[in-house]
Design a protein around this nucleic acid. Structure first.
Length: 463
RNA sequence: UCCUCGAUAGCUCAAUGGUGGAGCAACCGGCUGUUAACCGGUAGGUUGCAGGUUCGAGUCCUGCUCGGGGAGCCA
């Protein structure tokens, strides 16, 4: 008797109707009556479960009727059309073998659990509908990202996880060291002597692959990175994690508008891919997590993203009747409340904000003609906030060096980065997309801890 | 790190400073097409931890731990 994946039955039911099949999976629920009963069986291959019907003809009928949630069974029977309304077909069991009987103190029940509770059982939560949907989508979207860039001729670059660059400037870093924490070697003036450490210098986990990515961009023209990123910020919010995944494309012979066009094309591609490839999961998200999800996503696929300069955004905010907690003034960064107002109230769709003051942005962003702003862009989306941050890079060696001097950065630390400008440097641009924030946006999940299998946040590294 | 709210049965939540309850889950039974099945019954508790006030604390006070929401930082 052929063993079948439940996904294949749902996708090609004609092939299986009326035929004997063997299924192996876990019991999601049992409803038993006097002489027969129903089992919802999920084998993990598909979002939906398959209904198994069993009756007293089974030798072990009583045992089966008392099956507990998450017990594993093997069922042999005939696939038939179902008289019930909620499923198109069902398996009429002729034989059910119990592979693993689950104890009754199983923490998941046939009811809604809070996200907070499920986070405490991160090893079991992928068995729930919500997490089954979210994490299958996460897998599909990772694949879709590779497809999007590969179809366009981008080269996938594995930038290093361990970095010796101590000033990437994107936040607090996790130190990587093999020195003894209790008694590290010291230099003559009492400082820790990192020359005796594994790499002979201070090293950390990467906060961004961008600088390395630029080197490969200026060889391959179009590249992207996709890997884990680490930030040791003591930040406790629904959209920050200490370990997360980031996508960082970088394109040569390109300006900021090319960068934004790429970001917009990518976002639309990924949304379409999710809707086409995971219709059951997306429908579940739309029904149970975020009622307005489909409408919002469709609106994005169908429309152009908004564009506004930082200076215009400040004017819009200053003219608005909205009462903000923080003052709006040219020169200071936009607060979360300002960003939300722009994307949720003014534009009601994703919006690029460009041309930020140079003083609030990184040293490598290209200085504009006005000498006050840089060619930076942030993509803000409703509900999540900043999902992409990018810029055209400063390709003019003398301007870049001047900026580094102004900011007190040591040029010798960046010698190879500067050589990228010296040897065949050209206009180029790129951005960073937070993978988890993308998943949040596409599923409606509002906490980053619920889109990472085993999230790492401040004070939490369980599992 | 700051502000704010919270922690009571396995889960989700009630309980005026005065005998800690309900729904769901579990367990036992009933039910010939169920759909988070339904109906009846049984059992289930050091009220997050440590102190304090009080005749008496789940409830008030202090500290701590953990969690939610918001902020900063950012993707």
């Amino acid at each position: 008797m052929p063993k079948v994946d439940i996904k294949d039955i749902f996708r090609e039911k004609e092939k299986f109707l009326g035929r004997p099949l063997r299924l192996e999976g876990w019991v999601r629920t049992v409803r038993d009556l006097k002489a027969f009963g129903f089992i919802e069986l999920n084998d993990g291959t598909f979002f939906n479960s398959l209904q198994v019907v069993f009756d007293e003809n089974l030798a072990n009928f009583k045992e089966i009727a008392k099956l507990t949630l998450s017990s594993a069974i093997a069922v042999e029977g005939i696939l038939a059309e179902s008289p019930g309304e909620k499923q198109p077909f069902e398996l009429k069991a002729e034989k059910i073998e119990v592979l693993s009987l689950c104890p009754t103190d199983y923490p998941l029940q046939k009811k809604r659990h809070s996200f907070e509770y499920l986070r405490t059982i991160a090893h079991l939560r992928p068995r729930t509908n919500t997490y089954a949907a979210v994490f299958r989508l996460r897998s599909l979207l990772a694949y879709a990202i590779h497809r999007f860039f590969q179809e366009r001729g981008f080269v996938y670059v594995h930038t290093p996880i361990i970095t010796g660059s101590d000033a990437e400037g994107a936040g607090e870093m996790f130190r990587v060291s093999t020195l003894s924490l209790n008694s590290p070697p010291r230099t003559e003036d009492g400082e820790v002597d990192f020359s005796q450490d594994f790499f002979g210098k201070e090293t950390n986990l990467t906060v961004s692959g961008q600088l390395n990515g630029e080197a490969y961009c200026l060889a391959f023209n179009k590249i992207y990175t996709f890997g884990p990123t680490f930030r040791a910020e003591n930040s406790n919010t629904a959209r920050h994690a200490a370990e997360f995944w980031m996508i960082e494309p970088e394109i040569a012979f390109a300006e900021l508008r090319d960068d934004m066009q790429l970001a917009e094309d990518m976002m639309k591609y990924l949304i379409r891919y999710a809707l086409e490839q995971a219709p059951e999961e997306m429908a579940f998200c739309n029904n149970f997590i975020d009622k307005g999800l489909f409408e919002r996503l469709q609106n994005i696929v169908d429309s152009e993203f908004g564009h506004v300069t930082y200076t215009e955004a400040i004017e819009i905010l200053q003219k608005s009747k909205e009462e903000f907690t923080y003052p709006v003034a040219w020169g200071s960064d936009l607060q979360t409340e300002h960003e939300r107002y722009l994307t949720e109230k003014v534009f009601k769709k994703p919006v690029f904000v460009t041309g930020y003051p140079k003083d609030i942005k990184a040293f490598y962003m290209r200085l504009n003609e006005d000498n006050k702003t840089v060619a930076a862009m942030d993509l803000l989306v409703p509900g999540v906030g900043e999902i992409i941050g990018g810029s055209q890079r400063e390709e003019r060696l003398e301007v870049l060096e001047r900026r580094m001097d102004e900011l007190g950065l040591k040029k010798e630390d960046y010698w190879w980065y500067l050589e990228l400008r010296k040897f065949g440097g050209v206009k180029h641009a790129g951005y960073g997309l937070g993978f988890e924030r993308l998943i949040m946006y596409l599923t409606g999940i509002s906490n980053i801890r619920d889109v990472i299998p085993f999230p790492r946040t401040v004070n939490n590294c369980e599992f």
